[in-house]
Design a protein around this nucleic acid. Structure first.
Lengths: 166, 166
DNA sequence: GTATGTGCAAAACGTTTGCAAGTTC
DNA sequence: GAACTTGCAAACGTTTTGCACATAC
């Protein structure tokens, strides 16, 4: 579910610095667990769940505490380095923000695959709509549920119930 | 959280008929529990949670089984009479579809209030974007998280953690 | 040395399910 | 009376929390 992009390793240390600066500013302590988890998150350029983190660490033979993983994710959320998505299946998905400008998502109703897209025209229209209704837009999330062309019949059948979500 | 709009009682029986027709078509049996729950849902013109249903019935001194409430909601979802939303707090929100054309939502980051709006221009742009990316749009949900002007400072503080959601 | 973070296991949360009893068609 | 629905309580999967111990500053 989550993978590491080798080309971007150079950026990770920059992002780690940002994190440490923010943490210091808030009086949060730097620990090896936080470092390792944050590095994993910055190295991961797809959406991931907390379970993905745990699984990946376990696969590599490293131990992680579930509680700590959740706590680090919450901390980074608070520091604005992470975005939280609820794609409608009761599981929270995350993605790190540094180096990832705003985008929206198309989710396949059958296989659950998530595709990102950025559409500047849509963005400005959203802004306009918020203002029109008397709000100052903070964040926003547009999820388009659709059918992806690569879904097999079996996948469609299997997931029919599970994904009956708007 | 949910209220009954007296003016629309006339429509409720029409919608109950639709439901019964659909149920018959699928071989689903009509029971008093299903009737009462469905009527509540059709009478409720805001977003509601299953907990809202239970609470409202209990307040009126009527008993509902949690399991049955969940099952009726699932049934109506399957019949296409209900829409499910995940506004990002791990609780599912529903709204009935008859008489409610597609719309999007602005959610206050502080008090959690949900406002609906319909924007035809946005709709058609979403459709275009999906096609452009090779998808046939099924459903879609745009949530704009913003700050509502009526939020008090205390509410903001109280909910700061809880609603740190994209 | 004090404040903060960790890890475990237990609790909490909303939701689903197995099963025996009851109801509908 | 066969098939379906109900209600309970137990199970579920994800997330949070209380607490004793360990660590950072």
């Amino acid at each position: 579910m989550a993978s590491v992009d080798a080309k971007s390793h150079e950026n990770v240390s920059k992002e780690m610095d940002t994190l440490r600066t923010l943490m210091k500013k808030k009086g949060l302590k730097s620990t090896s667990q936080r470092d390792e988890l944050a590095r994993w998150i910055f190295e991961t350029h797809n959406h991931f769940t907390v379970e993905d983190i745990i699984a990946d660490f376990r696969n590599k033979g490293q131990r992680v505490s579930v509680a700590t993983a959740y706590r680090v994710v919450q901390m980074m959320l608070d520091l604005g380095l992470l975005l939280e998505h609820d794609f409608g299946r009761g599981i929270k998905h995350y993605e790190h923000t540094p180096g990832h400008p705003h985008h929206d998502h198309i989710i396949c109703n059958d296989c659950g695959k998530i595709v990102e897209f950025a559409e500047p025209e849509l963005e400005s229209m959203k802004e306009k709509v918020a203002i029109k209704h008397g709000y100052k837009m903070d964040t926003h999330t547009l999820c388009i549920y659709a059918e992806c062309t690569k879904c097999t019949k079996e996948e469609k059948e299997k997931n029919k119930k599970k994904f009956a979500v708007l």
